[in-house]
Computed example of a mutant assay.
Amino acid sequence: MAAVAAHYRDFLRLGAYPLAISTDSVYSHKVFAEVSPSAATVQYPLLSDRSGAIGRSYGVWDPKTGAFYRSTFIIDPLGRVRYYSVYPREVGRSVEEILRTLAGIQYGELTGEGAPAGWQPGMPGLKRDFSKAGTI
Rank of each mutant, 00 (worst) to 15 (best):
D62K: 11
Y83G: 01
P18H: 01
I105K: 03
L78P: 00
S85C: 10
P45E: 06
G125M: 05
G114M: 12
K127L: 06
G114V: 05
I74F: 08
Y69W: 13
V35Y: 06
Y84M: 07
S25Y: 13
E34K: 12
W119T: 05
T101H: 00
Q106N: 05
H29I: 09
K132S: 13
E113I: 05
A133S: 15
A3V: 08
G59M: 08
G79Y: 03
F11E: 04
Y107P: 05
Y83M: 03
G114W: 11
Y84W: 09
A5S: 02
I136Y: 12
D24Y: 08
K132M: 15
R80Y: 07
Y83V: 00
A103R: 09
Y58R: 00
L110M: 15
V4F: 06
S22N: 09
K64S: 13
S57Y: 03
P18G: 11
M1S: 14
F32K: 09
P18R: 01
A6V: 06
G118C: 03
E113N: 14
E113K: 13
L126W: 14
L14H: 11
R89N: 14
Y8P: 01
A133R: 15
A16C: 07
G114N: 12
L102N: 05
L102Q: 02
P77W: 00
T111C: 05
L110H: 13
A117V: 15
Y87Q: 10
A5F: 12
E109F: 11
V4T: 13
F32S: 06
T41G: 14
V31C: 10
Q120P: 06
S71Y: 02
I54R: 02
T135I: 13
S51M: 08
V95W: 00
R9K: 15
V26R: 11
V95N: 05
T41C: 12
E113G: 13
R100N: 14
S94V: 11
V81H: 02
K30R: 15
Y17P: 03
Y27I: 14
L47H: 03
F32L: 07
P77I: 01
L47T: 04
F11H: 02
V86T: 15
G52D: 04
Y83R: 02
V42S: 05
P88Y: 08
V81L: 00
P63E: 09
H29N: 04
L46N: 01
